[in-house]
Nucleic acid binder design. Structure first.
Length: 325
DNA sequence: CACTTGACCTGTCCGC
DNA sequence: TGCGGACAGGTCAAGT
């Protein structure tokens, strides 16, 4: 669920919150979540300070002064939440259930408290849903010298943090395969059309989700932009006209920019660097709106399966085109 | 080679 | 109330 707007929102938040901070220690509970962080590599993390935070596709890059970079993928349920030093003024004191497990994180393998802590968003219309941290989804904790902390939480353990020499980051296999950023201005409509057409045999939705075609689009914004362009998600690429593809790029950009303004989409897990939900889904036109009415034609939104994903569409606005062009 | 499906995980929701 | 099973969806490996 963290797609381009969510990861970018996290990046902006972290840029405000942690640049310049010095890392004092890093702990992780699960080799899967931090696969290449053996003991000997820790010297490249600790005592380093945060230089810059970048994003490519759905990947976050945290550049360290040690010339190493933390490469982070949130996958489906990952979160990066910053908690300030509790002794400094207002802020992130979390006391949802009043049961503060004050056990500080002391050993690498025991950072998971028995207290599940407050359930996310329980009963709160407010935008914050971070309970006491760490909680049982916490996989990695980065401690800063000033007492503040950055938590990498990931309920489903699909996400990861990896450490690479900064100079090697552009050469990482998956980094090289990413297609262009959809919001990059020098991506022209004809570039976009050309890249989509390389997936002529598949559906337009599968092409949009393919990170090597265009980077950063996931299930939510694929459905939303296809509705905007009035294209049925199961339409074969070779049955979509150039004009429609041009419209699709425009709609994709509109949707991504709107989501950026709204802090992204929170379906269940996603929060930004301060633990706040995104509100795009309050404005979504098809995603998770099956059974409700299309705001354009008032027909009922349906949910089907395309490219192995739950797919939401308006069957009247988004007519499927069978024949190739 | 091009494309689709299954596996990875855990929490939630639904029906019985 | 409890329990089994379907479902959620980003990415890669395995299968067609």
């Amino acid at each position: 669920m963290p797609e381009l707007p969510e990861v970018e929102t996290v990046r902006l938040g972290l840029s405000r919150l942690i640049i310049g901070k010095v890392i004092s220690s890093v702990r992780h509970d699960n080799p899967k979540s931090f696969p290449n962080a053996p003991q000997e590599v820790k010297e490249f993390i600790t005592q380093a300070h945060i230089l810059e935070i970048r994003r490519r596709a759905k990947v976050l890059l945290i550049d360290l002064s040690s010339d190493y970079t933390l490469v982070i993928h949130l996958k489906m349920t990952g979160q990066l939440v910053f908690i300030g030093n509790k002794h400094q003024g207002k802020g992130k004191s979390n006391k949802l259930l009043g049961k503060a497990p004050k056990t500080p994180v002391t050993s690498t393998l025991s950072l998971i408290p028995s207290e599940p802590s407050a359930r996310f968003g329980a009963g709160h219309p407010s935008s914050s849903l971070t309970g006491e941290l760490p909680d049982k989804s916490t996989r990695v904790v980065i401690n800063f010298a000033d007492g503040s902390k950055l938590f990498f939480n990931d309920q489903r353990k699909f996400g990861w943090v990896k450490l690479f020499p900064s100079i090697e980051v552009p050469n990482i296999n998956f980094m090289q395969k990413f297609g262009p950023e959809p919001l990059e201005e020098n991506l022209t409509a004809s570039d976009f059309i050309l890249r989509i057409r390389k997936r002529a045999g598949t559906t337009i939705k599968a092409a949009l989700l393919d990170q090597t075609v265009i980077a950063g689009v996931g299930n939510i914004y694929a459905d939303e932009s296809l509705w905007g362009a009035k294209i049925h998600p199961a339409t074969k690429v070779n049955a979509v006209s150039d004009a429609k593809l041009k419209t699709l790029l425009r709609e994709l950009r509109l949707v991504l920019n709107l989501a950026l303004d709204l802090g992204g989409s929170t379906d269940r897990n996603y929060v930004d660097a301060e633990g706040k939900k995104g509100s795009y889904l309050n404005f979504a036109r098809v995603f998770r709106r099956d059974g409700k009415l299309c705001i354009r034609c008032e027909s009922e939104i349906i949910k089907i399966r395309v490219a192995g994903r739950g797919t939401h569409l308006c069957p009247i606005c988004q007519k499927i085109v069978e024949k190739s062009l």
